[in-house]
Design a protein around this nucleic acid. Sequence first.
DNA 1: TAATAGCATGAGAACGATTGCAGGAGGTAA
DNA 2: TTACCTCCTGCAATCGTTCTCATGCTATTA
Lengths: 338, 338
Amino acid sequence: MMKTHSIKDVARIAKVSTATVSRVINNSNLVDSWTRDRVLKVIKKLDYHPNLVARSLIRGKSNLLTLIVPPEPNFFSAFYFRQILCGISHSLSKYPYRMMIYQPEGYDPKLGYPPHLDGFPMDGIFVIAPLLEDRLVKHLEKEKTPVVLINARSHVLDWIDLDNVSSAREVVLALSKMGHTRIGFINGLEGYNANARLEGYKLGLEKSGLSYDPQLVTNGDYSLEKGFTAAKKLLSHSRKPTVIFAANDLMAIGAIRAAHELGFSVPRELSIFGFDDSDAATLSQPQLSTVRQPFFEMGERATDFLVSRVENLKLPQKTIELPGQLVFRQSSKEKGKN
Amino acid sequence: MMKTHSIKDVARIAKVSTATVSRVINNSNLVDSWTRDRVLKVIKKLDYHPNLVARSLIRGKSNLLTLIVPPEPNFFSAFYFRQILCGISHSLSKYPYRMMIYQPEGYDPKLGYPPHLDGFPMDGIFVIAPLLEDRLVKHLEKEKTPVVLINARSHVLDWIDLDNVSSAREVVLALSKMGHTRIGFINGLEGYNANARLEGYKLGLEKSGLSYDPQLVTNGDYSLEKGFTAAKKLLSHSRKPTVIFAANDLMAIGAIRAAHELGFSVPRELSIFGFDDSDAATLSQPQLSTVRQPFFEMGERATDFLVSRVENLKLPQKTIELPGQLVFRQSSKEKGKN
DNA sequence: TAATAGCATGAGAACGATTGCAGGAGGTAA
DNA sequence: TTACCTCCTGCAATCGTTCTCATGCTATTA
């Protein structure tokens, strides 16, 4: 790197001490306006910019936030990740912080992230959708590095998550209002989300005065294939559902394909409802009714949370449950209508 | 932050100077093996990790690379960006570097990125698909910060780009081999890519012994809607094409919809060929034949380029043109077959 | 006039590492 | 014994900031 100007050069040329230059840079009011102008002029002339590494060293603060990403090679492609990233990046432009992305390698499908983070400088950490018993999260709960969990929860750390229970409940409620009484449900993988969505499903039934029928509920794994086979199973029973609600869009699309293969017309004979509003939702034929998760907003709020905590370490824990938004497209319709 | 141990603590406890500890950390062979063991033991006991900010300051090197992202709010969602990011992240795990993501705000659709980058520490820069006359790129061409352009070219900086000409040519060649003689083309926005793909299209025709017919070529803007209207236009002529080749998948899908609306069966009466192999390609009905751009590999190679240049500033310029890969799916078929 | 307050400034010690240089210990050769 | 070389180690300067403290100046008040 070419030798760039330092605060000393500015001080020398402006005939002041480095302390004064520093005060000017940091807008201290302890500096005479005439002196300030002189210094600013020199700064401009030299095109001087303070060295942020040196500043980090003395301040003990790097203004870098780290976004920790699960180690699946294609995780950056995941719909929700992208949207969250957009939200973070958008909100970050308000603050003098930058974001590092870190995808650790050693990841254990049971234990989560390795607890140590290599010592790269960072003032705060975003963790996206960690496992329930994540090692790193457990570790961070004991440290004082600010952390915000996105799409997960903690008793100690700040978090932002979808209100899964009420979102699923709203879907069931809406379907029931549309006249459906046999509502199939393809759940996701075991874990917090799946439990919550199933709970919401049951609450929705209850509120609608429908009874819970285990034959209408089956487990998936968020893959299109599993959605396909799960839907086939649901549709093979004698008392078939008139609508299938899947815990994500991909499984819903699998369900559409299963329905077509079995000769059911969607939505005339069978409605399908997804979850996520991923871009697959509008590309599918028919276009998918689904629950939009406010990922972008989650990213934005997470950034606000994290920055405010970095700047004030002793804030009380902050948590938000955001509601999902029902999006009605072609794959669902009122029962019996044409 | 809790007061973390510094090199002085290690030195004091191990009863050596900080210089010796530093040598141990950096695997200098100028240290007695007995001393080394003692120091390592203390390092382990204290769970000491060197402060990378301090190290950056003295070394003038941060081990941080910056990925510069165009300011469109949803850019992180763009298919090619995601894939490139996956590739970068994957390759980066081989090196002791981390990636910062920076999405500048002040961006001019004509002039590109603002030339100054806020002074956050970085040893090298990835720039994804900058404009041809980008201010930042012009500026970087004069500086010595290592840069690699992805999906763009420069006479000075390292770059990695698709071989657009030969990719488009291969498509036309393949379509011609399949018996098509009237090959429509929907080009992208003006710019390097569009020129190159059009050139490839023409070369393909030439090589196949077909003549160039301006009525078969039209311009798009990479949007689904424009693909739709462009296809309608191409299909309205008396001497219709038997296949439409679009410069990206989204326009190709628009073309499929146009064909359906006009009553053409795809691929029986009209074949469609896309470009990108985005995830829309497999979600479309029928699934899209297309050109796969090796984005993941581009990200990987870009990382290797950049790291090697950071570690050796005076390497000669490195450039790579990667070939696209033709992917045949349901939307294209041999002419006349059933 | 003397005491006090407030403002503007500079000197210099941090922050936590790396590294050039000097020097001591020990070995070998003359 | 002396000279010289090799191997190991520590001292202290350095990177570019920030920030505490001391100091000198001016204005205000009794």
